[in-house]
C-alpha cells in the first residue's frame, strides 16, 4: 500500500509572526508527485521545512501506512534523528565554498547518520554511485563542490537527498538552476522514483507548465493559505493565475495535450 501524508490544522510561526495558519490538506498519496506552487513569499519553503521537521509547527503531520496502516506515525515533535528516517528535505539554498567532492558529499548523507540507515561503508558507496549515475553526474563524482557550475551544484545537492531513499521526499526548487535538458531529466527521474518505490514526493516549482506535466496534484499556496488544490487542469486556471499571480494568462493544451500557460501581461 502506498503511504499517505496527512496535514491537519498546521500552523507555522517565525517568531510571533504566523506564516502558515491552520492549514489542512486532503492526504498526499505516494506513487505520484505533488507540486507546491505559488508566488514568492507565499510560504512554500516554510511549509516544506515544517514537513521536514526543521521549523516547529503546531497541528498534526502524519505518515500513514508505514509499518501498520492502523498506526499512523505522528511527525510533529519527533526528534530529528527519527524524522530523518522517513523524510528528506532538499533546501533551496546551496552551501558555498565547501572543500568536499561530489562523491564525498553524497556519501556523508549516509555516513553521518548511519545508525538510522544501517549500512556498511561499501553499501553506502555503492548507493552513492548509483544515485550519481541515475542523475547523470557520475563523471562529476571526483570534482570538488566548490568547482562546479550552479546547475551542477544543484544536481549534486539533489543527489544528497535521493541517496537517502526516503519515504517522503521534499524538494525545494530543485530545477531552478538547470538547463532544459536537465530540468526534464530531473522531473522524469523524480516521477519515476515516486512510481517505482511508491514514495511521497512534494516538489516546489515555479514553472507551472512543468508542474502540470509531471505532477498528479497541484497545491497552490498564497500568503500561507491554499488557494487551489487538485489535478493540474483543476488547479491551473486563468482565474487562479489572475488572482494568485496577478497575471493575465491563458491555459491551453499544446498539440500533444500538455497544459501550457501563456502569460499575456502582468495585471
Amino acid at each position: 500500500m502506498a503511504p499517505l501524508l496527512t496535514l491537519d490544522g498546521l500552523s507555522v510561526f517565525y517568531g510571533r509572526r504566523p506564516i502558515i495558519e491552520n492549514l489542512s490538506l486532503t492526504p498526499i498519496t505516494g506513487g505520484g508527485v505533488t507540486a507546491l506552487i505559488g508566488p514568492n513569499a507565499a510560504g512554500k519553503t516554510t511549509l516544506l521545512r515544517a514537513l521536514a521537521g526543521l521549523v516547529p509547527a503546531k497541528g498534526s503531520i502524519r505518515l500513514v501506512g508505514m509499518a501498520s496502516p492502523a498506526h499512523p506515525l505522528e511527525l510533529t515533535g519527533l526528534p530529528v534523528s527519527q524524522h530523518a528516517r522517513h523524510v528528506t528535505y532538499m533546501p533551496q539554498a546551496l552551501p558555498q565554498r565547501v572543500a568536499l567532492t561530489v562523491f564525498e558529499a553524497t556519501l556523508s548523507a549516509l555516513m553521518s547518520a548511519r545508525s538510522d540507515v544501517v549500512l556498511s561503508t561499501s553499501e553506502a558507496q555503492a548507493r552513492a554511485l548509483e544515485t550519481l549515475e541515475r542523475l547523470g553526474i557520475l563523471d562529476l563524482s571526483r570534482r570538488g563542490l566548490d568547482e562546479l557550475s550552479g546547475g551542477q551544484r544543484q544536481l549534486a545537492s539533489l543527489a544528497q537527498s535521493l541517496v537517502r531513499e526516503p519515504t517522503v521526499l521534499l524538494l525545494d526548487e530543485p530545477t531552478s538552476a538547470l538547463d532544459i535538458h536537465h530540468q526534464m531529466r530531473v522531473m522524469q527521474l523524480v516521477a519515476e522514483l515516486a512510481r517505482e518505490r511508491s514514495i511521497i514526493v512534494v516538489i516546489v516549482l515555479h514553472d507551472i507548465a512543468q508542474a502540470a506535466r509531471y505532477c498528479q496534484r497541484i497545491v497552490v499556496l498564497e500568503h500561507g493559505v491554499v488557494a487551489a488544490d487538485g489535478l493540474p487542469e483543476q488547479a491551473i486556471t486563468p482565474q487562479m493565475l489572475a488572482r494568485v499571480y496577478k497575471v493575465e494568462a491563458r491555459v491551453e493544451p499544446c498539440s500533444q495535450g500538455f497544459l501550457q500557460v501563456i502569460v499575456d501581461r502582468a495585471a
Partner: peptide
C-alpha cells in the same frame, strides 16, 4: 567527524540527514 562533514553542506541539510 562525519557529522561535522555533513554540517558543511548546510544546517538544514545536516538536520534533514538526522543530525541534531
Amino acid at each position: 567527524s562525519w557529522r561535522m562533514t555533513a554540517l558543511r553542506l548546510g544546517e538544514d541539510r545536516a538536520r534533514s540527514f538526522g543530525i541534531s
